[in-house]
């Protein structure tokens, strides 16, 4: 990544994200890589608020706020309009939360990528509906507390594997990224920008408010998610070629869970079964990537 790209900011101070907001960092890194020839569609999500109330905007690029379920459809339209105007240079980006991607916006997203619309869809994933008060989504991980999975009724279902769902559409590019690995994130954004067709980036962005953790830990936690392979960093081209970008060694999930309030009810046995699920997913990914299984 060139230094002048790193130095350029396309976002202003004074936004209203919570202290330590991972989504704000994710946006900052993404725009550093994409540059100002970008138009962004933001369906309802945290960023609808963070971007500022009318007449303010914290982003130095054009933003179109859209309805919750329409991220993919609006982007398709905006792309078509630009193409009619002869502007093929501008990158059209949908920036949606996990609710607008995994749940409410999934139909529009699936439709758009099935048509291989020429745009980038970025999901910044904070693993619940944070902006409306921490309701569970299909991105909420197994074991998590939310206001709709409270107390002993914590979520006993697995997180939807959204990247694999997109990979199944055989889109040109799908990747995961994390706010704790900015160089990797920016490289992937740059790579996506230089490609055509539907591109999908899934950014793990921690949420101190919703996850019950100190704000200063937000990057640390995101890094641990990668180190423990709870959220592996990888990219898939044309739905076929897998590349694992970071292969960690020997980190166990326990510490990651212990540092977050949303998991504090979990027992040792719960953590053991979660470790098994994580290992299972990681081994599945290794198989897809054609990497020999770890002999453990």
């Amino acid at each position: 990544m060139q230094l002048d790209n790193l130095n350029r900011e396309h976002m202003c101070s004074g936004h209203v994200g919570c202290p330590g907001c991972g989504a704000a960092l994710a946006m900052r890194f993404l725009l550093k890589a994409l540059g100002n020839k970008t138009i962004m569609i933001i369906p309802a999500c945290c960023w609808s608020i963070i971007a500022g109330p009318y007449p303010q905007s914290t982003l130095k690029i054009p933003v179109l706020h859209s309805a919750f379920e329409t991220g993919g459809a609006v982007a398709s339209g905006v792309r078509a309009a630009h193409d009619i105007k002869g502007d093929t240079e501008t990158t059209v980006v949908t920036w949606a939360g996990d609710g607008g991607t995994f749940d409410i916006g999934f139909q529009a997203l699936s439709g758009a990528v099935e048509r291989n619309e020429n745009f980038i869809y970025v999901c910044y994933d904070n693993e619940a509906y944070m902006n409306t008060g921490v309701q569970r989504s299909s991105s909420t991980p197994y074991g998590a507390w939310t206001t709709t999975t409270p107390g002993q009724h914590w979520k006993r279902l697995r997180k939807k594997n959204i990247v694999e769902a997109l990979v199944a559409h055989r889109i040109p590019y799908a990747a995961t990224a994390s706010i704790a690995f900015p160089e990797d994130l920016m490289r992937k954004a740059k790579k996506a920008k230089d490609m055509a067709g539907s591109r999908f980036i899934h950014i793990f962005s921690s949420c101190p408010t919703g996850w019950g953790m100190p704000s200063e830990m937000s990057v640390k936690i995101a890094r641990m998610a990668v180190q423990t392979t709870i959220f592996p960093l990888y990219e898939v081209e044309d739905g076929l070629r897998y590349t694992i970008n970071y292969t960690p060694k020997g980190y166990l999930v326990n510490e990651y869970f212990r540092l977050q309030g949303r998991f504090k009810h979990l027992t040792e046995e719960d953590l053991e079964s979660i470790q098994e699920m994580v290992d299972e997913d990681w081994n599945l990914l290794l198989r897809k990537a054609g990497v020999a299984l770890e002999t453990s």
Partner: peptide, 15 residues
Amino acid sequence: PCSYLTTEGNKTGSW
């Protein structure tokens, strides 16, 4: 409606 101000007027340091 189209925004015409940045958020820099919000001195969020007060938080």
